[in-house]
Write a protein that binds this DNA or RNA. Sequence first.
DNA 1: GTCTATAATGGGATAGAC
DNA 2: GTCTATCCCATTATAGAC
Lengths: 193, 193
Amino acid sequence: MDKKDKILEVAREVFQKKGKSGARMQEIADKAGVNKALLHYYFTNKEGLFKEVFTEMIRKTLLPLKINLLSGEDLEVKIKKFVAGYIDIMKENPNMVSFILGELRMNKIPIDPPEDIKESLNVLRVQLRDDDRFKTIDPFQIMSMIIGSCIFPFIGRPMLTRLGLEDEQTYEQFLEDRKEILPDIILDGIRNR
Amino acid sequence: MDKKDKILEVAREVFQKKGKSGARMQEIADKAGVNKALLHYYFTNKEGLFKEVFTEMIRKTLLPLKINLLSGEDLEVKIKKFVAGYIDIMKENPNMVSFILGELRMNKIPIDPPEDIKESLNVLRVQLRDDDRFKTIDPFQIMSMIIGSCIFPFIGRPMLTRLGLEDEQTYEQFLEDRKEILPDIILDGIRNR
DNA sequence: GTCTATAATGGGATAGAC
DNA sequence: GTCTATCCCATTATAGAC
């Protein structure tokens, strides 16, 4: 593999684990099997390396939000697909969300206003209003519920572990179950009766 | 105010905003209006100061989980109270949860096994099983849903802001609404029909 | 207890050879 | 492009006066 890519790969991992200020250029260099100076050659400085990694991650986290939510698909199908898809994405990178949200809290990082996500919230609003199988509810509330519930098993894993979801096996099963249970509860929760 | 307490108060704030490795002893000293050396006098080193702040926060965040959830109160009442109470706690310290979860991810911090929270999960399990108004569902799934949904407006605030919940007023209203909407959806979601 | 002054070092950055 | 060697500043930590 290209050394530049190797550096990026390792940087992703180290930044995620230690945070921007906790990460060490030396550690990244070592784990990538290159010299520290090479990081500066490619990315100028720590800030540059961080930005590269970070924006890439934002893309990875927000993209699925867009593609799924922009569709005009039936609400039930949409939510089911979204939950399953989002959980799968995070399984690949369990620390990503915690990392992103943490850095957004610590540094004022400007990210481009996600116009299409705004749009998808509108689609959702209309769907909730017009589909009389469901109650008319603020889409922000629903979104926060869905996303919050999807990410908690990852950002709160240390907690869950201590509370009993200890072995990998059980945890994995928990996530798979969640893909079904979560949409079921939420959909039943907003259904008119 | 006692200088030691003042240091702790400021440290809490700075650690929360910048994270453990991003925080600067100098900044804490300045904002507390004392000399840097005094921090070492009281807390030996940065690690010591951090630990003091951190464990205090864990106590603050987990305590309400205990008192609310340990009660054998009716499920509906319990969940309503919990949501309202938890949101209120976090309003006082909006960055606390993000901070705690972030540090737990970055450093392997040993926190004492929360036996009583485990116990409360068991109470919940029994309640769900025996109360035939509700479906029998894994309490981990429900807990993760409730907590995830409660904390998302805080840890994900940068996102929500960009998506439209911009001014303080709207955000505040969103939180107040949430105290009602969240329990309603969740309870309806797990109700037998 | 609280400060001033200073030591010690970690860690980001760069010059320059190859 | 990649490395060695070195610089230098920011930051933690301590010695010692008051």
